[in-house]
Design a protein around this nucleic acid. Structure first.
Length: 549
DNA sequence: CTAGGGTTAG
């Protein structure tokens, strides 16, 4: 029998749980369940227990709260990424003396590291021992993932080796897959492939998921040829690809603008009875939009609808971004309104996309209106949203407000990342506030952020603008010792800086150095794609992509 | 009931 209440979000739900009226009340009984309607709606169901759960019965045969039931709830809530809600629900369990088991604690570990609280994850491990529970392969794999998300690869590897030496809890294919994904995330494809080879030799053979992880990573880095090679290698080992494999490959070739190759892959998958799904279509919509072919992207959306694949918020967000790119912000806003009218579709990314569109076109006031609107709706602006706004304020020269927002985001628990810093740094440099910029740079170093070539390029530019060509040159020359390669932008900055300082000869040398390098960069894997594919035809034949199926 | 793979935003 369904009853009780619907609540707007899990924060409200858990608040309700912790209020006196609910403590130890129906939701804590084995015959009640928390049901998820969509991303935001929760309801408590009251139903007759379908069958008694033996292990949780007391001697008096009273229905006792069931751990399993709770794990189901916690698992569901965790899946929706309401991690802090899981933790408060867990604390409620303590209050009402429901035991925890390995499942519960593993969910908890998962939630803590998603909240950037790996320390607490590790302290949960202590709880295992206190309760006399044995962490299992799920627990260790979860911990390994936590380490990897925090860039603590060494500790992840240590844990893996401990497992292998320990004996009673051997890593399985998921554990290895997790580590491999960690390598991929750090951009270390060769380490990932090395481990894959080890697996192929060992007892724990790689499966489709493991291959998909690496294929995706190679495609992401536009190493499409390597990806296609691994793809055929995988099939020759008798592992059949699925829609995920093909979506990764299609994404890879689309990023290169190789529409013909994309068509070939689409036809190939369909011929194997593997059908494109919403992810596959979203890849097509997004890459078309990024190429400025929004009209074609709209066509793809039409096809999706014809095929009964509902466009989702990702689809519409891509379209919005495409319109913004073409300065058709009115159309972007229309898409936004369409999403609003469909209910529950507008998410943080949607707001962020439109806010970014406004910021890029220097309409900071409209951006701020949207920002307030999203906060009002209870959506939590994330690092990316704040970064867009900081950028917007920098663009209109309101650098003080940009800095204020930079502090505000941290007060709201949204940590600036390299991208945020780079935008503020750029704003400061362009506004000749070099000392503040250097101070910010020091902050980045102290936080051990991965300082990349973009950051150094910005600083070099700042030094050039303020006439400190010597320091700029020093920084530029020191790049290789930091393991960094100057890119097009770095060269441009350095060349124009040298010119402005009247060092024309040096500027010319810098230019020819870049020309030599550029030639090397142009000859990439692009030319090696399979026969019949062409790279440069991105603005021709927009429709043949879909003709054949 | 707990762990691994594909799409969007700076």
């Amino acid at each position: 029998m369904l009853k009780m209440m619907m609540m707007r979000n899990i924060a409200a739900a858990s608040f309700y749980c912790s209020s006196r009226r609910w403590r130890g009340m129906p939701c804590l009984h084995s015959n009640s369940t928390l049901v998820v309607f969509d991303n935001n709606y929760f309801a408590f169901f009251h139903s007759q227990p379908s069958k008694p759960i033996k292990s949780t019965r007391t001697q008096l045969d009273q229905p006792r709260p069931s751990v399993v039931r709770f794990n189901q709830i916690l698992g569901q809530v965790a899946k929706l990424k309401h991690y802090s809600a899981v933790i408060s629900l867990y604390n409620q369990m303590g209050v009402s003396r429901i035991g925890h088991d390995v499942y519960t604690l593993t969910i908890l570990i998962n939630c803590y590291f998603h909240l950037n609280q790996m320390g607490f994850s590790l302290s949960v491990l202590g709880k295992f021992f206190k309760l006399g529970l044995e962490p299992d392969v799920f627990t260790f794999t979860t911990l390994i993932k936590g380490f990897l998300l925090e860039n603590r690869v060494a500790e992840a590897a240590t844990l893996l080796h401990k497992m292998m030496r320990g004996g009673n809890c051997q890593p399985n294919v998921v554990t290895f897959g997790t580590i491999i994904r960690g390598f991929c995330m750090k951009g270390n494809n060769s380490a990932a492939i090395q481990l894959l080879r080890k697996m192929e030799e060992g007892a724990c053979k790689p499966n489709l998921v493991v291959y998909n992880t690496i294929i995706h990573s190679l495609c992401k880095d536009t190493l499409v040829v390597d990806a296609l090679n691994l793809f055929s290698e995988m099939m020759s080992k008798g592992i059949a690809p699925n829609v995920i494999t093909y979506t990764s490959l299609i994404h890879g070739v689309c990023k290169l603008g190789a529409w013909k190759e994309a068509t070939r892959l689409l036809n190939e998958m369909v011929s194997k009875n593997i059908f494109p799904d919403v992810f596959t279509f979203n890849v097509l919509v997004d890459t078309l939009c990024k190429e400025g072919m929004v009209v074609e992207a709209e066509g793809v959306v039409e096809i999706m609808i014809q095929r009964d694949i509902d466009p989702d918020s990702v689809t519409y967000n891509s379209l919005m971004d495409g319109y913004c790119l073409r300065r058709e912000i009115g159309k972007a806003k229309k898409v936004f309104e369409l999403m609003l009218s469909k209910g529950s579709m507008v998410d943080v990314v949607s707001y962020c996309t439109l806010i970014n569109g406004y910021c890029k076109h220097k309409k900071i006031d409209k951006a701020m209106m949207l920002f307030l609107d999203m906060c009002h709706k209870g959506l939590v602006a994330d690092t990316i949203t704040y970064t867009s706004l900081v950028d917007g304020f920098c663009k209109v020269g309101r650098i003080d407000y940009a800095q204020k927002l930079f502090s505000k985001m941290q007060a709201c628990g949204q940590l600036p990342n390299v991208r945020t810093y780079s935008i503020l740094l750029d704003g400061l440099c362009k506004n000749r506030q070099l000392s503040r910029a250097m101070q910010l740079f020091g902050e980045m170093e102290a936080k051990k952020l991965d300082i990349d070539i973009v950051i150094y390029s910005i600083l070099i530019e700042g030094l050039c603008i303020t006439g400190k060509i010597e320091s700029a040159r020093d920084l530029y020359c020191g790049l290789s010792s930091k393991g960094l390669q100057p890119n097009v932008r770095t060269y441009n900055i350095m060349i124009s800086g040298l010119c402005i300082a009247g060092l024309t000869h040096e500027a010319k040398m810098c230019l020819s150095k870049w020309k030599r390098k550029a030639v090397l960069l142009m000859v990439g894997p692009l030319t090696q794609l399979s026969e019949g594919s062409s790279i440069i035809n991105r603005h021709q034949g927009q429709w043949y992509l879909f003709k054949q199926w």
